[in-house]
């Protein structure tokens, strides 16, 4: 772990310079420990692909005390058994009415549309970090067989909930915005809703899994979301031996 300066009120604990599950696991551990300890001199923290930035109040703790503390937390990481990551189910309708580029993705990869959906709904995707817009997840773990370049000309409007592919990445649009991703489906659930008591329903370090639903189910869940009666489905992720 390297400690870097990020201004006079932040320190960055950096765990590597690549995108990897091992690094993310350390960052999730670090974040979990900070969540538990609730230090009054720490204002907030931002986990990313390779680091966690910690904003502190320099009137309450010196930089060297901060360094000492972060080194101690790193040592604890090896000893503490962290809770399993959570996998949130994202019900997604892969209907051409909602996923206009599903055909393109299938054709580009010499697959049928059904095969694309099967491949896209198979993995548990790791949420490396949230950024860009409120609740936008940077996901890892997409199968190379459905990689597709971005649209040559971005759309001026992509509806919120749209699920897309851009090169090696897959993602979900938490707000309606312009965008150049290949849209293969849409989820009726809202990753981000500023009026909710928990505005963003997913956390960096956890996982999501797409679940294929019909257009009728999409409409049904959409009305449940509107009535605020929809309950997100999630389960604890089991790590297999080979991954450990």
């Amino acid at each position: 772990m390297k400690l870097l300066l990020s201004g006079d009120s932040s320190v960055i604990a950096e765990f590597g310079n690549e995108i990897s599950v091992e690094i993310n696991e350390k960052i999730r551990g670090f974040k979990t420990l900070l969540d538990e300890k609730k230090f009054e001199f720490i204002n907030e923290y931002v986990p990313t692909y390779r680091s966690i930035k910690i904003d502190y109040n320099p009137n309450l703790i010196t930089h060297s005390e901060m360094q000492k503390l972060l080194n101690t937390i790193e040592k604890e990481l090896k000893l503490v058994k962290l809770p399993e990551a959570k996998v949130t189910i994202i019900p997604t309708c892969y209907d051409l009415r909602l996923g206009p580029d599903l055909e393109t993705v299938a054709r580009h990869n010499n697959l049928t549309e059904e095969e694309v959906v099967k491949i896209h709904t198979s993995p548990e995707y790791l949420i490396y970090m949230l950024g860009f817009t409120p609740g936008f997840p940077y996901l890892g773990g997409m199968n190379q067989r459905i990689e597709t370049p971005r649209l040559s000309s971005p759309r001026t409007r992509v509806e919120l909930g749209s699920v897309g592919i851009a090169d090696k990445q897959t993602g979900i649009y938490p707000i309606t915005s312009p965008g150049g991703w290949q849209i293969i489906g849409r989820t009726p659930i809202k990753l981000y809703d500023p009026s909710r008591s928990v505005p963003i329903m997913i956390n960096a370090g956890d996982y999501i899994k797409f679940d294929s639903i019909t257009y009728e189910e999409f409409e049904h869940i959409q009305s449940e979301v509107k009535e605020e009666s929809y309950k997100a489905v999630s389960y604890e992720r089991r790590v297999t031996k080979s991954e450990d």
């Binding site: 990020s6 201004g7 950096e14 995108i19 990313t48 692909y49 390779r50 680091s51 950024g131």
Partner: peptide, 11 residues
Amino acid sequence: DIISDAISFGA
């Protein structure tokens, strides 16, 4: 280019 990390006020 770097692999994205977090941004402080005044970075």
